[in-house]
Design a protein around this nucleic acid. Structure first.
Lengths: 228, 228
DNA sequence: TCAAAAGTGTTTCACTTACACCCATGA
DNA sequence: TCATGGGTGTAAGTGAAACACTTTTGA
């Protein structure tokens, strides 16, 4: 009936997005055994006086320098053999950061330790982290269809083209531009920014929009249900 | 950086259903401090060589004598202050048992230790178990709309009236009998049992049906998506 | 024969889907 | 003026919702 050696960790699957590079996940290279020098999810042991969320946030900061702007619990992985040395149970979290922070890491100093990997091109990974990432990716794909999480991945100001590309990348299928715009606008939680357009390369400039979270929260309280 | 005293438990929110009594949750009365003699979710410490699922199953058997026929992980609760004595992180599970097993417990011998409580009439509970139950109830309500979990709560053979009552109870709103039947039958995973009807009290006997899980699994593989 | 519960179809409406051309800009 | 990408409306089809009477049994 006794329990002695189970130790508790948290791991974070943080998604980032850039137009040019698509959807990526933040990984760190392990410095210690087991799996020394193998890529792994950022994470670590939970301290005795901090909450699980605090632990994830702290570890992310320590290991990658990044602060997410969305975080939710994903799943707890606890198979006895998932760590070859000792019994470790890990509470996995699911995080999103917006496009501008994504860029910051790329310009950061820890680039040899933490790196972004496109979700279609992940390295071999430590522990059961491949399975954790699969679970997180499935969650993201599901979530984007019924919660406005996409906006967390974009910059504050974005064009419909940006949004459309993101959804195309996440859903893995094409979207009808007209229907998509019609639907999103009908929700009435996007603000069209006045006269702010955005030339880029070539072509007609696009209107910029902003996600109005307050408006969204009001709507959900009234029973509104977002769905792509 | 050290972690010493965090201990890991599992807790189970098991739902049962009976036509007469509605949706209930299985609780046990605690024998020891803290919260001695207070109602709590069945659960306990995870042993070092067992998986989390095994731990829940074992604890349920030990404390209530019951075996669930559906079990999934719900959420991990880990606020530092959730246990007044020590740091305990608990992985909560969500379980369903069918109507016949529900009756068994009522006829069992452990009735003073384990008991069913209607979800609309729960006692004061130990730890943060009220919050865990809230999360589980929300999950059940959501889940029943896009996964055929309702059948786990009913007997193997059931009538459309049973199914309809269950959904009415879970969703908390009335259902149009014709539309409901039309929709469920259109999924084509219910077997109409030959000539088996079921008089009860008064009124026209009803056809009995059975959930064909194999058929359902086939359909989901083909991309079918259940939705009420 | 009456009360109680089960079984059954059709119409309306809303939402989703499909689809092609013009507009604004930089090169 | 051309190439590039942004912006826009309508028609057809599909699925959801609303709705009331008949059937079968026990009392």
């Amino acid at each position: 009936m006794e329990q002695t050696g189970i130790r508790l960790t948290v791991d974070a699957v943080v998604f980032g997005y850039a137009k040019t590079e698509g959807v990526s996940i933040l990984l760190v290279k392990r410095k210690y055994e087991p799996f020394k020098n193998t890529w792994a999810l950022p994470g670590g042991f939970v301290l005795e006086d901090e909450s699980l969320e605090q632990a994830v946030t702290r570890e992310l900061k320590e290991e990658t320098g990044i602060a997410v702007n969305y975080l939710e619990q994903l799943y707890t992985f606890g198979e006895p053999a998932r760590d070859p040395r000792q019994r470790i149970v890990s509470v996995a979290y699911f995080g999103l950061i917006n496009s501008s922070m994504y860029k910051e890491l790329h310009a950061g100093t820890d680039a040899d330790k933490a790196e972004w990997f496109n979700i279609t091109n992940l390295p071999h990974m430590a522990f059961d982290h491949t399975a954790i990432i699969q679970a997180a990716t499935a969650r993201l794909r599901a979530k984007i269809q019924y919660q406005p999480v996409g906006f967390e991945l974009l910059d504050k100001k974005f064009s419909f083209a940006d949004l459309e590309k993101l959804y195309t990348a996440l859903l893995g299928r094409d979207i009808d531009r007209r229907n998509f715009r019609k639907k999103i606008l009908s929700f009435d939680f996007l603000e069209k920014l006045p006269e702010v357009t955005h030339p880029e390369g070539q072509g007609r400039p696009s209107n910029m929009f902003r996600f109005n979270k307050k408006r969204y929260d009001q709507l959900t309280k009234k029973g509104f249900f977002f769905e792509i």
